[in-house]
Amino acid sequence: MQGKVWKFGDNIDTDLIIAARYLNTSEPSELAKHVMEDADPQFVSKMGEGDIIVAGENFGCGSSREHAPIALKAAGINAVIAPTFARIFYRNAFNMGLPIFELKEAAEINEGDVVRIDMDAGEIINVTQAKTYKFTPIPEFMQELVNAGGLIEFAKNEIKAGA
């Protein structure tokens, strides 16, 4: 995947990603209309399908609302890159199928850069700056879940095996 970068700072919390005033629904298309609104009210009108968010430390801190990765994914954000992610957001993003990548050097990427992510090689390539980075591999156990097609697919396989 390849996309244009939007930069955000440290500790982007889930209220900034999707404010609670919009949590009277879990409809992805509704949530997408308000993604990152309190961080940048113009974000939805500026961003494009396939863009990538690059942020600082502890992205997704705060609430457990899965509406946050849902909103990002439904808005068309291709991936989120950050040095670290908050624990619940990290798990939710995997469960929702929003690709996220831990990259220590995330700060070197600038807004507007074009970044390509090569999942197989474990690389993030900054096309604009002609720099290549290795992202932190995901934990082995989580790779099993990804291979199964996500947590619910994993559960379905168990239901089938038990039946």
């Binding site: 899965e66 619940i88 798990r91 939710n92 929702m96 947590l151």
Partner: peptide
């Protein structure tokens, strides 16, 4: 705390990782 999908996994299987 966990997300909704992890909760669903708990509802389906009774447990989680």
């Amino acid at each position: 705390g966990m997300g909704s999908t992890d909760l669903a996994f708990g509802m389906i299987t009774g447990g989680n990782w």
